[in-house]
Design a protein around this nucleic acid. Structure first.
Lengths: 209, 209
DNA sequence: ACTCTTCTGATACACTTGTTCCTGAAACAA
DNA sequence: TTGTTTCAGGAACAAGTGTATCAGAAGAGT
C-alpha cells in the first residue's frame, strides 16, 4: 500500500469533478486547495507524473490548460447541416465560409463517426429517390467534400445529363464509369467520365426514428 | 450595415474554433490576436456584451473561463454493442448485467441520437436480410428494449413461426398484426398477434463507410 | 547502514491575464 | 447643435498562475 492513499488519483478525480462542475480546468493552486495539499509544487510534481504516465496533457506555461486524455478520444465534432439532398436538385456545395459562420443547424457527432476527418458536412435526404442506396427520406448523410474517390467508395454524384444527384458506388472502367447501387439486387448504370461529377464521399448515414 | 463587419460574431467563432482545437478557452489577448484586434480592452468590451446577450458565460477574474452557453448541455452516452442481428438467429436479449459489465465494444453517441433514453443497446447487422427495412449488411441498429411499441414505429420483431427476426413497422389491425417494410415499394406481411414477439424499438440506424 | 527513488514543503520569480481608466471616432436621435 | 450610445485604441495595475529551486522526509532495495 502506498504511503499516502494515492494523492495522484485524488488529484485526477478532483480534475474530473472540477471540469464537470466548472467547465474549465483547475489551476495548480485550485488542486492544492481541493486536495488538501499545502503547496503548488507538490501538485506540480504530480501533474508532471500524470502527464508522463499519459493521463493528462498540459500546454506549458498556459494557465488552466490541463486536459484529460480519457476525454480527448470522445471529443464531439460539430458538423454543419448545410441543406437537403434530393434527386432533382444539385447538392449545395459548401461555401468556404460556411464552416466558420454559423449554419442553420449543426450536428453533434463523436469522433467515432467522423474519424476526425476534415471538410465534413451533413445533408438531410428529401424524398425516396435514394432508396437504391438504402437511404430513406429523412435520413442524414455525412459527406466529406472531395472530387476524387477510390473505386468502390460510395460517392455523391451529380449526373450532368440527367440533372440529378445520386449516391452510388464508383467504379472506373475503361472508357466509362460504372455506378453501382448499394442495394446489390439492383442493376448498375454506366456513364461517360465527363457526364458524372463527384461531389463528395459518403462517410456515414444516420437515421433517427 | 454595421460599421465593422460584426466583430462580435467573429469573436464568437474564434472562441468556438479555439475550444475545438485546444480544448480550453482563449484569453482576451488570444482573441485579440486571432481577430486582428489591437487591444484587450476591445475584446473585453465585446465579451461583456456577449455575456449580457447570453452567448457566453465567464467567471470574473478567472483566466480562460469563457464558456459557450450553446455547448453547456452536451453529453456523451456509451451504448453497449451486444452482438449481431441476422435474419436466422434470435436477437441477443441483453442480460441485466450486460449494461454494467464491460461489453466487447461500446459505441459513443451524443444525446442527439439517444435522446437520453434508457435501456439502449446496439446490434451490428449481419447479412442483407433486412434490406427491405433499408438496413444494409454492417449497419448498426440502436435499439431500445421494450415489449410494446406504438403503431407505426419500427420494431425488432421475432417471428415465431418462421424462427426469424426482422425490422418492420408495426400496425395493429383487428385480429392480426401488419408488418410494413420501411421500403414503401414492398408489400406488408400479416401475422396473428401470438406469432410475433416484439423485442425492441429501433431508435436509430448507423452506417459507417 | 546506505543509497536511491518517491514524495512533501516552503519560498520566490517572472510571466500571463483580467480589469480599469482614459481618449476619441462614428453613428444616431432630439 | 448637443447629447448618447457604440465601438476602437493605448497604457498600466494588480492579481492569478506556471515554474524553478532548495530542502527534507519516508519508504524500498541492497
Amino acid at each position: 500500500m502506498p504511503r499516502v492513499s494515492d494523492t495522484r488519483s485524488r488529484i485526477l478525480n478532483f480534475i474530473r469533478r472540477f471540469l464537470d462542475r466548472r467547465g474549465y480546468a483547475p489551476t495548480v493552486r485550485d488542486i492544492a486547495r481541493g486536495c488538501n495539499i499545502s503547496t503548488p509544487s507538490v501538485v506540480q510534481y504530480h501533474l508532471n507524473m500524470l502527464e508522463e504516465q499519459g493521463f493528462i496533457h498540459r500546454d506549458p506555461a498556459v494557465f488552466r490548460s490541463i486536459q484529460l486524455v480519457e476525454r480527448k478520444r470522445e471529443a464531439i465534432s460539430r458538423v454543419p447541416l448545410l441543406g437537403t439532398i434530393a434527386a432533382g436538385s444539385p447538392i449545395p456545395v459548401p461555401a468556404p465560409d460556411s464552416w466558420t459562420t454559423t449554419p442553420e443547424e449543426t450536428l453533434q457527432l463523436t469522433s467515432e463517426l467522423t474519424q476526425d476527418k476534415k471538410d465534413i458536412y451533413a445533408l438531410r435526404v428529401k424524398g425516396t429517390s435514394l432508396v437504391d442506396a438504402l437511404v430513406d427520406d429523412g435520413d442524414i448523410v455525412i459527406i466529406q467534400q472531395t472530387t476524387t474517390v477510390e473505386d468502390g467508395e460510395l460517392a455523391a454524384v451529380w449526373l450532368k445529363t440527367q440533372q440529378e444527384v445520386t449516391l452510388k458506388k464508383i467504379y472506373r472502367e475503361k472508357g466509362r464509369i460504372r455506378l453501382q447501387p448499394a442495394n446489390k439486387t439492383m442493376q448498375p448504370m454506366y456513364f461517360k467520365p465527363e457526364e458524372v461529377e463527384i461531389q463528395g464521399k459518403v462517410i456515414a448515414v444516420l437515421r433517427k426514428l
